[in-house]
Write a protein that binds this DNA or RNA. Structure first.
Lengths: 344, 344
DNA sequence: TTTAGCACTCATTTGATAGGAGTGCTAATT
DNA sequence: AATTAGCACTCCTATCAAATGAGTGCTAAA
C-alpha cells in the first residue's frame, strides 16, 4: 500500500504533531503549522480518506485525528527521517561510560543511566549471556583443607570462578583426577551442551567420588547457569511517568503490571531482529497487555558476537526516530565498552 | 506525656481505623466500631483534647480526625500490639527461600520478593558488606600465559576471585614473589585498612614489577570495593501503587523522586538502630522530602555480625505493627540463609 | 460527667448551561 | 475535477449554583 504525496504529508503531520503534543490533531492546526498550501477543508478530505484506510482514527466525533497502529507503522517504514544525537549528547554518553568500570554490573548501570538521560522511556536490557561460549578448561584449585576454587575458562577469554567446600577426606590427587575427567568430558563443548548432556556420563565415571562430584557438578551448573542466564535489567521507571499518558494512575498501574512480569520484557527482547534496530508497535508486541505500548530494540555484542539486547518501552505515541537513534547509539557504545577489556 | 485510658482508646481507634481506611475518622464511626461505651459526643470531647495536645488533627473543619506524626509515635510506642505472621505466611517465606540459591544476588531477590508478597510497601536493603572483614590470604594463580586469577580469602570464609590479564614477561617466580609481598603486607588487615593505607608501601617494595603490581592492586581494589560497597537493592515499586495515597500521580512522582536518590534510602538504613527494629515516622526521617513517609528497618547478620539493613518505606499511614513483624521476621530468615553456607 | 440536639461548616456531588474545538457536508469557486 | 468557504452538527469540557451529607462544636438537659 502506498499513498500519494499529499496524503503522506498529512499523515506525517498528524504523527509528528501527535507525538509532540499527545493531543488529537486537527485539520486547522496542520494547515497552520505545516505549509501544505491547502486549506483545512482539503486536509479534512484527506483525513477522511486516511481514516478509511485505517491509518488514523478519531477518538470521538468532534475531535481531531490520532494515528492508529497501522499509521505509526506506515510512518516508521516510509516517512520517518533519521535523526542524530547532538554532539553534546554524545559527549554526555562518553562521560558516563568514561569512568573506569571493571565490573559488568557497573557497565549495565552506566547504560541504564545514559539512556535515562536521553529519553523518557523505560529502558531494559538482557544481560550478556554466553550460551554458545565454549569451555576451554576447568581447574580445581585447593585453597586450604576443605576449600577449593572451581575455575571455568571459556574460549572467549572469560573466566569464572567460584569457591566451594569439600569433604575433608578428599586428597589433592583426587581433585587432580576429577579435574582430568571433567576436562576430558567437557572440553570443547558449549555451555548449553554441557548442562544438557554429558552430566550423567561424568557422574558414572566418577562414581567413587560421588559426594564430591555431586557438589562440584552442582556448582558448575550454578556458574554456567549464572553465565547463561539472560539477566534482565530495568530502568527509567521514574522517567516514564513524565509521559502524559501516565498522568492517569490506572495506566501507570497497568504499565507496572506489565513490566513486573519479566517474561513480557524478555519476549520483546527475544523477538527482536539481532541485526538491526527493531520497532514493534502496539499489538505487534506479542502480548495482550502491550497493545498500547511500543518497543524499540537493538542487540549489542562483544567482539562481534551478539550477547544481549537493549530495548525501550513507551506509549505507542513514541518518538520513534529519537528512540531508534538512542538505542542504536547506546548499543554501539555498550558493545565497545564490553569488547574493550576482559571483565569478570 | 501520658494519657488517661479513654483518650488512649480513642487515639488507638483513630490510628487503627485510619490505617485501615485511609480516611479521616469520625466520632460516630468510633462509637459504632469500638465499644467504648460512650456516645459520639463524648468521643468528640476527647478528640478535641487530643487535637489540642497535637496527637491528631482535622484536615478541615467538618472532617473527621487523622493521626498526626506525634500521634503515630505515641501509638507505636505505647499502644500498638505486636502481631504475628500466620503460619501460611511463614510457609510462604520458607518456600521462597527454599530454592537452592547459591548466589548472593539470588538471595537478595528472594528477600525482595518475599517482602513484596507480604506487604504493599517499598522494600529496600543494603547488600551485605564486609568493611570489617579481615584478609586471611591472597593467592595469585596463573591460569595460562598472560592470564591469572587473583584470589582473596577472608577470615569469615568468604572467597573472592577475579581473573586478570598479565604482561607476558612475568614469570611464575615473579608472581610467587608478588604474592608473598602482598600477603606480608595485607594479611590480618581489615578491608578498610587495606584500601586506606599500606598501598603505597607495597607499591615501593614491588617497584620493579610496577606494571604488573599496578594492575593487581587495581584489581584488588575493585574486588574489595565491590565487597565493601553497601549495595542498595529496591523492590515493591508496583506494590506501593496500591496504597490509596498514591492514586494521585503527583504523589507518585514525588515518591519516585525520593527513592531515585539512593542516598535518601541509604541514610534511612544507616540511621537505623542495628540492634532492634527501628521505626521512623515522617519528619523523624532526616530528609525534607520524607516528611510524609515512614520507614521501618531492621539489621540482618551473617553468623552474628551485622552486615546490612532491610527497610520498608510507606506512607505515614503505615501498618506499623505489620511492617515491624515482617521486617523482623524477614531479616531473621535472611540472616539464617546467609549464614548457612559460603557464597560466592 | 455524659449526652441529646441542633446549628454550622465545608468538601463533594449533581445537573444544567455555555463555550469551543473540530468535523462533515454542500454549494460555490477556481 | 479539485478546492474551499460556509455552516450545521456533535461532543467534550469548563463553570457555576444548588443540593447533599458527613462531621463537628456548643449548649443545655440528664
Amino acid at each position: 500500500m502506498s499513498l500519494d504525496l499529499r496524503k503522506e504529508q498529512v499523515l506525517e503531520a498528524i504523527v509528528i504533531s501527535h507525538i509532540e503534543t499527545a493531543e488529537p490533531v486537527s485539520s486547522r492546526s496542520i494547515a497552520r503549522k505545516y505549509n501544505l498550501g491547502v486549506s483545512p477543508a482539503t486536509i479534512r478530505n484527506e483525513m477522511a480518506d486516511l481514516e478509511e484506510i485505517g491509518l488514523i482514527r478519531q477518538p470521538h466525533t468532534s475531535a481531531g485525528r490520532v494515528p492508529s497502529q497501522k499509521g505509526y507503522r506506515y510512518y516508521v517504514d516510509k516517512l520517518m527521517k533519521k535523526t542524530e544525537l547532538t554532539t553534546r549528547e554524545k559527549k554526555l554518553i562518553r562521560a558516563i561510560f568514561a569512568k573506569k568500570v571493571k565490573v559488568l554490573a557497573d557497565i549495565i548501570q552506566c547504560t541504564l543511566k545514559a539512556v535515562a538521560q536521553l529519553t523518557d522511556y523505560l529502558v531494559f536490557l538482557s544481560g550478556p549471556y554466553f550460551e554458545n561460549d565454549v569451555l576451554k578448561k576447568i581447574k580445581i584449585i585447593q585453597l586450604m583443607p576443605g576449600k577449593a576454587l572451581l575455575v571455568i575458562m571459556a574460549e572467549t577469554g572469560w573466566v569464572h570462578s567460584k569457591a566451594m567446600d569439600l569433604p575433608s577426606d578428599i586428597t589433592a590427587d583426587d581433585l587432580a583426577y576429577i579435574e582430568l575427567v571433567l576436562n576430558h568430558y567437557f572440553q570443547g563443548l558449549s555451555f548449553t551442551q554441557i548442562t544438557r548432556t554429558v552430566l550423567k556420563d561424568v557422574y558414572n565415571e566418577l562414581n567413587r567420588y560421588r559426594r564430591t562430584i555431586n557438589h562440584i557438578l552442582e556448582i558448575m551448573e550454578v556458574v554456567l547457569q549464572e553465565e547463561m542466564k539472560e539477566n534482565l535489567y530495568l530502568g527509567g521507571t521514574n522517567r516514564i511517568l513524565r509521559q502524559p499518558e501516565y498522568s492517569d494512575i490506572e495506566e501507570v498501574r497497568k504499565l507496572m503490571n506489565f513490566i513486573e512480569r519479566e517474561e513480557n520484557l524478555r519476549t520483546i527482547l527475544q523477538d527482536a531482529d539481532p541485526y538491526r534496530v527493531t520497532v514493534k508497535i502496539g499489538e505487534e508486541i506479542k502480548s495482550e497487555q502491550a497493545s498500547k505500548y511500543s518497543a524499540v530494540t537493538a542487540a549489542y555484542n562483544i567482539g562481534g558476537n551478539i550477547v544481549g539486547t537493549l530495548g525501550l518501552l513507551g506509549p505507542m505515541r513514541m518518538d520513534y526516530a529519537r528512540a531508534m537513534t538512542v538505542v542504536e547509539h547506546i548499543t554501539q557504545v555498550l558493545s565497545e565498552a564490553l569488547s574493550e577489556e576482559s571483565f569478570y
